[in-house]
Design a protein around this nucleic acid. Structure first.
Length: 287
DNA sequence: TAAGATAAGAGGGACAT
DNA sequence: ATGTCAGTCTTATCTTA
């Protein structure tokens, strides 16, 4: 086994197989060159994070009735500490705000995990959820719906290719609920979403079908031309990408049926046919 | 068997009431 | 707030090559 500190990969020394891709580095994230620097930068505690309901910053009073030197506390101090612990716990979790956030964050965790979303996206979703909470958008709606919608919004903002359907499939809710919540928060928070480009969907579909690089390139060409002529507005990007790939397959004589593409892209064959038809007409493509 | 055609229905945006 | 309209996409079924 060879461990590569730079990439964090552990690689088998004889065959080159990557065993684990990410290794947790327990060391500090800063560097220090002098003793003074080291001392001034040293700090204690977990890093702050948005995906724990209190951002990981709350104080925890140790349950052991000992002082800093490990000696038992005198009885009256012990009683006082016990009372403090109770109030501390109440103020942390038992306020309705924190209960709400705590539940939302755990749902976010679960969902992000299932969809293999990067930490960055999850943290952004957590920020969005907090904004929703502050704007009072959660009251009267389900926490799960707002949490799922926040995650979807974070995906969109980061151009991370996940469909609303993929998201709702991993929750108990149906697509309608999540998309309603998503539209609500998009409107209320005035989120400026990047326009979803069909170009970015091509690799995803092509990879599922194992299509050649050449075919992908042709599909991208077709979509570029269509975008330039404004034929793509208002159409499902996934459907456009699927249709372009279908045309590309025909042109490069790569065997691929509409059905295969429709399954990989998550759009129906009929929709692919429609997009295929007007792409062909609009761009005057002869196959 | 794959691809095309047709029709009915759902859901949401734009716009008027 | 509620209703209507055009356009998109889905589901289902039938036809064609």
């Amino acid at each position: 086994m060879i461990h590569d500190e730079d990439t964090g990969e552990t690689v088998c020394g004889s065959c080159g197989l990557v065993v684990t891709e990410s290794v947790i580095d327990g060391g500090p994230e800063w560097r220090a060159f002098t003793v003074e620097e080291r001392e001034s930068r040293t700090r204690v505690g977990a890093p702050m994070t948005y995906s724990i309901s209190d951002m990981g910053l709350s104080t925890v009073i140790s349950p052991a009735d000992k002082d800093a030197h490990g000696l038992k506390l005198p009885p009256d101090t012990r009683l006082q500490m016990r009372r403090l612990r109770i109030w501390q716990a109440r103020s942390r979790i038992y306020s309705s705000e924190d209960r709400n956030l705590a539940q939302a964050m755990s749902e976010l965790d679960l969902l992000a995990d299932r969809l293999h979303l990067p930490l960055l996206v999850k943290e952004e979703a957590a920020v969005i959820y907090r904004k929703c909470f502050d704007k009072d958008l959660v009251r009267g709606r389900s926490i799960s719906a707002i949490a799922a919608a926040s995650l979807y919004a974070a995906c969109r903002l980061n151009q991370t290719q996940r469909t609303l359907r993929e998201l709702s499939r991993n929750t108990k809710m149906d697509l309608k609920e999540v998309s309603r919540a998503y539209r609500l928060i998009q409107k209320e928070l005035r989120l400026q979403m990047p326009v979803p480009s069909p170009l970015l969907r091509v690799p995803k579909i092509a990879a599922m079908l194992g299509l050649r690089e050449e075919t992908q390139r042709r599909a991208v060409d077709i979509l570029r031309r269509a975008e330039r002529l404004r034929f793509t507005a208002g159409k499902d990007p996934m459907a456009l990408a699927a249709a372009a790939l279908y045309i590309a397959c025909l042109m490069s004589e790569e065997a691929c049926t509409q059905k295969m593409i429709s399954e990989a892209a998550g759009v129906t064959e009929v929709t692919i046919r429609n997009r295929y038809k007007n792409l062909k007409e609009d761009l005057k493509i002869d196959i």
